[in-house]
Every structure is written in C-alpha cells, then in structure tokens.
Simulated scan of single mutants.
Amino acid sequence: MAEPPEPDQRSEPTRSPKRSRNDTTSTRLVMISAVLGALLVFTVAAALNWPSEESAQPGLGERPTTTSPPPEFEAPPGTCLNWTEPDATDIREVNCSEPHLFEMTGKSEVWARFGPDAPFPDTEVFNELKTRRCTDVAREYLDGRLDPEGRFEASAFLPSEESWERGDRTLHCALQQPGPAGKLYRFTGKVAELDQSDVYEVGTCLGISGSAVSSLVDCSRPHSVEITGVVDLGEEFSGQHPGTEQQDEYLIDACRQRLEDFAGSADAAENKDLTLYWDNIGQPSWQAGSRRVNCKVAATLGEDEGFAPVTGSVRGEVSISEEPAPTTPPSPGVPATRTR
C-alpha cells in the first residue's frame, strides 16, 4: 500500500603572490558566502514546460558563459558545505565526515536556453533549471546511482542578478536532504556511500499542515504520521525488482511485526483508530540500490484526502482531532534544528 500523496547565492578577492592553506580556505569561504548572499537555494521543484534545445546551434551549450571570465566559484565537486542561518550567511566548508547540508556535484551551463540579452529568470524557471539540469549532473556524479524518489534531491547555487547581467549562465549543482516541508536536514558522509532509501528512524513523527505531511515534530504535538518500523526488502527479495503486489504481500506481515515490536501489539493501530500502512519501492529506486521502506501509522481521511491531526504516540494514549490542522507555509532551504 503506497503512502497517500503529499500536497506537499561573488566578488573577486585581491590575491597575493603566495597564500597559506588557511588563507586559501578563507578566500574560498568568502567567495561562497558572497554567492549565497545574492542567491536563493531552491528546494521546491516546479513542473514547467521545457523548451527544446535540439534546434540550438551545435556547440552552443559549450559556449563560455561570458566573454570575460566571471568571478570563480571555488566549491568543486565533492565539496561539503554547512550553515546554520536561514540566509546561509555563516556558510562554511566542512569535512564530509561532519554533518552538512550540501554536497557539490558539478556545474551545468544554460547558455543554449538563455542568450546574452535574456532577462533574469523568475523563481519558477530557476526551480525548473535546478531540477532538470542538476539532477542530470548528480546522476553523472553518482555514476547513475541516484534514487529519483530517495532522501536526496538535486539543488543549486544560482547566478545573482549582477553576475547574470555579466553573462553568467552557470548553475553550481549540489545534493541536499530536504524534509516534506522543504527544510534541509544535515547528513554525514558522501552520498555515494550512503543508503538513499527515503526512510526515517523508528519513533519519528512527521508534522501536519492542513491535511498534509509537514516537518518533523515531537510525537506529543499534532502530527500526521508516526514511523513504527523499517523493513529491508533486500532481505526478502534479491535480483530483479519485486512488483508492488509482491512487496505488499510481504510487508503486511512485516509491518505488523514491526508495530508489535514498537507498540507492544500488532493491533495497536487498529485499537486506536489508526491505519497501519507502508511505502513501496519503485523500479528506478531499486536499480539505484534502495531497499528499505518505512511502516507507518496515521489517521487517514480516505484515499487521496490526507490525514487528521494525531497527538501522542501509538505506544501510549493518542487523540485524533476532528478539526483540520492549521496550514503552515513551507520553509524551503531553511536548515532544520534536528536530524532527520
């Protein structure tokens, strides 16, 4: 049974002939911070029409973004970045073994679509660019192992209006880990070495906005979903991708067992007017190496209608509100204060 759908930033520094390693790092951070000060980090994808570039002049996409070199952006593929302020003014490069928000994956040029006189794109167009172009960059960076429905998503540092006017048409692409309402959650390690399965730890509760899933909250607060288990489908299925029906036949018992382990009874959800359900893994995710899914409980409002607010954990007393939860705006790009 699939989960109900969710409605769900350059200034050129003065360079001395010689610099120490610390000086180099400092300069890099100044440049990155300058970029972020002028840019937006978009996390909400826009579904827009994509003009064909097949008719573009051959080689046009390889044309330099400007007749004179733009100020450099020193964050090569594999660089990991972290910040705590919503506007990323404290951005810094960190070792990828430390918690971080961005892992740089490469660049994408968009000259073929935007000529020298093109106006600065709006947010929706930049979201489209980020999603389409940087997803391709991320897929290449990961040698094809990008789970399109996994916990990591392509994003980008985008040209500022000033650099755009100078001819900059470069997207600096990265991978990030957003939550349901757009907040960014830190991760540790390189994405290539991590499980991309879109799962949460057992006992996690996801907030509620209206009838939709929102950011992670304590289970003592109104929420939409509580995670009651994690199942590794790789323990049951090997080789080819198992169809949804095969997964469901296995998961109905596996998730009941996880619920019993978590709440003390396989009937704990039913006894409290909650629904036990689970995620499925699609073929592209399976091919990318994802195998784990979540078992969940929630007060569902019917097919495709979302959730009712639940307060309390299925492990104890719960209350289900008959009134819809207040609708809260998403927080795209804002660092979360807790881990995912």
Score class of each variant (00 low, 15 high):
Leu251Phe: 05
Glu305Met: 13
Asp90Thr: 03
Gln287Tyr: 03
Thr204Gly: 07
Ala75Glu: 09
Pro86Asn: 08
Pro330Tyr: 11
Ser224Asp: 09
Asp143Arg: 07
Val225Tyr: 00
Asp122Gln: 04
Glu322Leu: 09
Ser55Trp: 07
Ser33Thr: 06
Val293Tyr: 01
Glu161Met: 08
Arg291His: 10
Pro17Gly: 06
Arg139Leu: 02
Gly179Arg: 07
Lys107Tyr: 10
Val213Ile: 15
Gln257Ala: 15
Ser238Asn: 14
Lys107Ala: 13
Arg169Met: 05
Glu74Ser: 10
Asp23Arg: 14
Glu226Arg: 03
Pro148Leu: 10
Leu171Thr: 13
Phe187Trp: 01
Arg256Asp: 08
Lys296Phe: 07
Ile320Trp: 00
Ser265Arg: 02
Asp304Ile: 08
Pro324Lys: 10
Leu274Cys: 02
Asn294Val: 14
Cys134Ser: 09
Glu165Thr: 15
Val30Leu: 13
Leu274Ala: 01
Val44Pro: 01
Glu74Asp: 08
Pro17Thr: 10
Thr188Pro: 04
Glu236Met: 08
Arg63Trp: 12
Ala269Thr: 00
Asn22Ile: 14
His100Arg: 05
His100Ala: 00
Gly316Pro: 05
Arg28Gln: 09
Thr84Met: 00
Arg186Phe: 02
Asp147Thr: 11
Thr135Met: 09
Pro4Ser: 11
Glu322Gln: 11
Thr339Val: 10
Arg133Ile: 00
Ala192Asn: 04
Asp90Leu: 02
Arg21Tyr: 10
Glu162Leu: 13
Glu93Gln: 10
Leu129Trp: 10
Val213Ala: 04
Ala325Thr: 00
Gly239Trp: 15
Phe120Thr: 07
Phe262Cys: 04
Lys183Glu: 15
Ser319Pro: 12
Lys183Cys: 08
Ala336Phe: 03
Lys18Met: 13
Ser97Asn: 06
Ala47Tyr: 10
Leu39Thr: 15
Val125Arg: 13
Glu140Val: 13
Ala154Ile: 09
Gly306Arg: 01
Arg169Cys: 08
Ile208Lys: 10
Ser321Arg: 03
Pro17Tyr: 07
Thr188Gln: 00
Thr328Asp: 15
Trp83Glu: 00
Asp267Met: 03
Met1Gln: 08
Pro4Arg: 10
Ala263Ile: 00
Glu260Trp: 07
Pro77Ala: 05
Asp248Ile: 15
Gly333Asp: 03
Pro58Ala: 11
Arg315Asn: 10
Glu303Leu: 14
Val213Phe: 07
Gln287Ala: 14
Ser331Glu: 14
Pro324Arg: 15
Cys80Tyr: 03
Val217Ala: 05
Leu274Asp: 05
Gly234Thr: 09
Leu233Met: 08
Asp195Tyr: 11
Arg151Thr: 04
Val314Tyr: 00
Leu81Gly: 02
Gln247Leu: 02
Leu251Gly: 01
Leu129Lys: 09
Pro309Leu: 00
Ser224Tyr: 11
Thr204Ile: 02
Ala268Gly: 03
Glu103Asn: 04
Gly289Gln: 08
Ser313Thr: 07
Ala299Met: 05
Ala266His: 10
Leu259Cys: 06
Ala212Cys: 11
Val44Ile: 09
Arg21Met: 11
Met31Phe: 04
